[in-house]
Design a protein around this nucleic acid. Sequence first.
DNA 1: GATGAATGAGTCTTCATTCAT
DNA 2: GATGAATGAAGACTCATTCAT
Lengths: 228, 228, 228, 228
Amino acid sequence: MTAVTRRERVEQKERAILEAAAEAFVESGYDGARMADIAKRAGVAEGTVYLYFKTKTDLMRAFVADFWGDLTQRAEQAVADKGETFEALDALAAMHLQNLIERFDVVELTQSGRVRRGDTPGNREFMKAYVAVFDRIWRRGMDRSELIETAVHWQARDIFFGSLEYAARTIRLHRDRTQASVVDNLIETLKKRYAVTTKEKPSTQKSERLLQRLEAAVTRLENTSNRA
Amino acid sequence: MTAVTRRERVEQKERAILEAAAEAFVESGYDGARMADIAKRAGVAEGTVYLYFKTKTDLMRAFVADFWGDLTQRAEQAVADKGETFEALDALAAMHLQNLIERFDVVELTQSGRVRRGDTPGNREFMKAYVAVFDRIWRRGMDRSELIETAVHWQARDIFFGSLEYAARTIRLHRDRTQASVVDNLIETLKKRYAVTTKEKPSTQKSERLLQRLEAAVTRLENTSNRA
Amino acid sequence: MTAVTRRERVEQKERAILEAAAEAFVESGYDGARMADIAKRAGVAEGTVYLYFKTKTDLMRAFVADFWGDLTQRAEQAVADKGETFEALDALAAMHLQNLIERFDVVELTQSGRVRRGDTPGNREFMKAYVAVFDRIWRRGMDRSELIETAVHWQARDIFFGSLEYAARTIRLHRDRTQASVVDNLIETLKKRYAVTTKEKPSTQKSERLLQRLEAAVTRLENTSNRA
Amino acid sequence: MTAVTRRERVEQKERAILEAAAEAFVESGYDGARMADIAKRAGVAEGTVYLYFKTKTDLMRAFVADFWGDLTQRAEQAVADKGETFEALDALAAMHLQNLIERFDVVELTQSGRVRRGDTPGNREFMKAYVAVFDRIWRRGMDRSELIETAVHWQARDIFFGSLEYAARTIRLHRDRTQASVVDNLIETLKKRYAVTTKEKPSTQKSERLLQRLEAAVTRLENTSNRA
DNA sequence: GATGAATGAGTCTTCATTCAT
DNA sequence: GATGAATGAAGACTCATTCAT
């Protein structure tokens, strides 16, 4: 009944395995998960799993890709209709925090650089796509001059994702902390730091820009001498 | 020179094993690490490891405790002589980021709540002691009215540690980003959000700081070129 | 010839493992036997053994059950067509002694209540089924009045099995002793003690019966006072 | 205080180890017993055990020898003052059964031909000395013509020891069976088979014996009820 | 003689992967 | 394509025995 064409049937089975893998990996981590268990959960024979995924590592990779792809899509939707920069960031933050909390295990499993032996070189790729959602908002904010000119893109990004991730961790332990307050505070903080206030004196801005250039130069110097 | 009393020798061996374990765990994670390998690295027989640590899990536990204890101590020292709140936070941030970058693997391994199967219930305990260093600074800042009254302690903490952690991750991938700039930006951000404003022009402070860095960088350059 | 259906092949392999285990256990005892060795003897890989028996203990259990089941069956057959009590006992004794001598190691291994660590709780169960063969003969002998009324069932049983077991042990050491002579002597002894002789004066019988009742009463008394 | 001469101190330590070994072996069997545990129980260092016994096997051997030596001595004492053959056998049987029941684990451990790997080739030797007590009685019985001329020595011995051993096993499981009744029945059986009949009414003897037991039981009862 | 820390060979067991059906 | 029985390498842990102090 469900699925008729050969192609559909294949995809359906692949999906089943992937979902089974997700469960197993999240429950027990990469090493803890058993292929036999995954097969059973997916309702297929052990050997069958290997028809779809060459190795356990491969299955892990696929699972991670799948997960982040899904997340990215959701993030993009959440942001789609937001016009103003901080409004969009607010929406993204809310969505992200929600995702982090809901699927914390996966995120953790996924991004811990080296999911120990499931060596998934390329995990980062999927996360990049996700992070790109933020980047787009930010760039547009700069274009629209809703963000101060001296804002350093990646620094803001670190604060954005870093804070949320950490918050997700603590929120799980302290159920009295609300997601909303975390998001509000983060946005407020970013605003205070990066939003363009019309009152700001241009002269300040100018010297600030100069400082910024100096900063870049010094950083380059530091790196140069460090490497030497 | 190399230990004489029985007690010293025992402690020395325990330390050797712990260090070997650290290496192995960091390199390969809990599951990936091999007891045989740890023993070899420590220069003892396999069975000997079990004289000091009842099980692999136990060894992991000891390693984690050891690591965080050390980190905490270092953080406390770094902060000890700092009076003003943001000065102290600056020092702590610098130290923390340094630690994170240097021993990123361990931190990751350690704090990913569930190092899968090495189940180290109580890891959080060690981190708590570490986080307490921040808490003390913050509370004093409130007492001294250097922080705005509406500041929410834990939110600030999330931003502080979250940003640094995330930054550590990205810095490892983008060598052109400096630790100093990350710290500067974070402190600046926190100030903008939580500092009680005293009219003082912030740019002055900042440029001063930059001058210091510039001086240091140039000095290094001079040394480098002298050597070449 | 050598099995065709899947089911047959599986059973064949299980049997092979069980037989290999029997050999190993008998040769070296529970602790002495090596799973690797059993696997090799059975012509399968080490892991395969674990597909059929969850653990070494489990394998031991199966082996013991198997062995006694087989023995019981053989004993029942041997006795099947014997009518008169002592004739049946003779057949059983011959069969039992034969079994004991042939598979002495197993019996010893098996019944030494505590095969140390192969802890086979329930071994006794299998032996019970075996002993039941004797019991049936004895009860019928009582019913048919071929045994004196005062005969105590379990005492006779102890002599029967005890003598044979011990004899099996000594026969193995002194090859000049024949099984037949042992069985003959045992049956003769039991006859002298428990067979109904028509010549016996009724008066004697009567007093004997009285003594028997007294005996029972005393035994009860002894137990009572012991327990108190 | 206890033990002064060097020799005494040594023997005392050896005894301590032997006793510790006995405990361990009986509790856990040969393979189950740990040398470290034995050392601890004996209150000496692990290495010390090896100063007294070359190997674990050796220790086992010594323990077995010790055990049977003691048993033999007790059996000889029990029999010492008995004149008539069956009287002596009765005493020996009672003593033996008592021993078997009390120290069943050891006997089992000891005599199970191959205490698996503790390979004690020579265990039999110790048992031989024990069995010799029976042999002496029997031979004297033949000399005195208290036993029929056709009696086969070893067959009688098998029945004697075999029955008692088996009975010991069952008695442990059925506490309502008394040792006395087992011994009585065994002696009665042997008499019926091997005693030279002297017309004397056996019932008399038996009833006499029963009277003794009755008296003893009643006495115990009296004491019991007094206490209550 | 005594100690007990150190050794390392030897065990059971697991599990990713293969392959005959 | 699917199955699942079979494989066997690998790993944590134990414990009799040794030996430097």
